[in-house]
Simulated assay, not measured.
Amino acid sequence: MIFLLILLALVVIVGGVIAVLAVVTAGQRRSMAEENEVIPGTPTRAPTAWARSHDVEAKLHRRLRDAMTALHAVAAYDTAASLSMRSGLEQSALAVDHHLVAVAALPRPHRERQLPEVTLAVETIEAGVADYTTATTKPDLSALEADLTAVQSRLDAVTQIRRTLDAS
């Protein structure tokens, strides 16, 4: 009888440990998926392995994620134009990230032909975020509209790069 009680206690303890491990593992997976998002709250098609990978595509993905983190950290003077630019930068980053996932799935020769264009798109988005930060954090709101033209030119450049990638 004592043997059965000990066996039952062991089964309960082992079951509890397994349940705790399952909950912790699920939490870690969810956390990695959230950490991998380019824009917080917007799921990405990028593999979760890219959160730690040293592949070129993974590094470019993380650069996009970091640029969007910086964009969201800006204490901007919001106007209709600045909000539009911010939204444009976010949408461009998502679109480039989708291209990046598609490029990563290509055979090596095709991927190597596409990577310079995707890299240029990532660099342009990063520069756009820098321009946005400069433009929207100045206390002189009269100069804001003029400064946002630099951001718009970056967005136009990303759009052109995306068209090139679509045509390839």
Rank of each mutant, 00 (worst) to 15 (best):
A105S: 08
V118A: 15
G88R: 03
I39H: 08
V101C: 04
M1T: 08
H61A: 11
A143C: 00
L60I: 08
R111K: 15
I13R: 07
A22R: 15
I125G: 05
V20W: 14
L7T: 13
L144F: 05
D147Q: 13
A80P: 00
M1K: 04
R65A: 10
A81Q: 14
I39F: 04
A93T: 06
A51W: 05
I18Y: 10
T44L: 02
D156K: 11
Q91E: 10
T134R: 14
V11R: 06
Q152R: 08
Y132A: 09
A130S: 14
A105T: 02
A127K: 15
R45Y: 01
G15W: 09
A67E: 14
T159R: 14
F3G: 04
T133D: 14
L71V: 05
H72Y: 06
V17N: 02
P116F: 06
E37K: 02
L64V: 12
M68S: 02
G41D: 03
I39Y: 06
T134A: 11
V118M: 03
S82A: 12
M85N: 05
Q114L: 09
H61W: 03
E145K: 09
P43K: 15
A146G: 05
S53A: 15
R111V: 07
T124G: 10
Q28F: 06
L83Q: 12
R162F: 00
G88W: 03
I2R: 13
L144T: 09
A95M: 03
A135H: 07
